[in-house]
Amino acid sequence: SLGLRDLAHLADESRCFSVNEVEALFELYKKISCSIIDDGLIHKEELQLALFKTPSGQNLFLDRVFDLFDEKKNGVIEFDEFIHALSVFHPLAPVEDKINFAFRLYDLRQTGFIEREEVMQMVIAILMESRVKLSDDLLEAILDKTFEDADTDRDGKICQEEWKEFVLRHPNLLKNMTLPYLRDITTAFPSFVFNTAVED
């Protein structure tokens, strides 16, 4: 359980969640963190189970998502890390935070750039997942077109500044960076009222 001070601190830090919302997210956190290993911490398999409904299998983005949540890099997602990361996905979170988070997500090799090779790898992953077949020529054409638009200095990779400008021209690319659920999280997890420390 969490004390009122911890809750208030997390809510304050998030700039998006109230104390009751942090408590509701704690209900969700408890559920996920006890799904495989009952230690109150989210392990990678538990994140995978929550996202894909199966604890095994491969997904290109699972490692990146886990890594971005796991700020302390100790192999588990602690509750404060869970709140920090989810606050980026709040409908009211600053667009700048969403843009930066998405950049770090797509920078698979963490070189500080989104490289053509990485984009190719990510597109192939989604084509395989959705069982859509595209010819190599069409795939190259999609990549060419994307880089023509995004890579304004033509060095073959997308830097943070180019990414920001690109995303602002194509705001639909940030759609998956907003979770509408977070707007009404206390309704989704009403059981927080049994453990609440405060009435908002």
Partner: peptide, 25 residues
């Protein structure tokens, strides 16, 4: 239509990037 989308529009459809699923546990 995949062919008419830019690469990142396609990428953002990946299930691993759909954190909505977290709330359906």
């Amino acid at each position: 239509q995949p062919a008419s989308m830019n690469a990142f529009e396609l990428i953002s459809l990946n299930r691993g990037l759909n954190l909505d699923n977290l709330f359906e546990t």
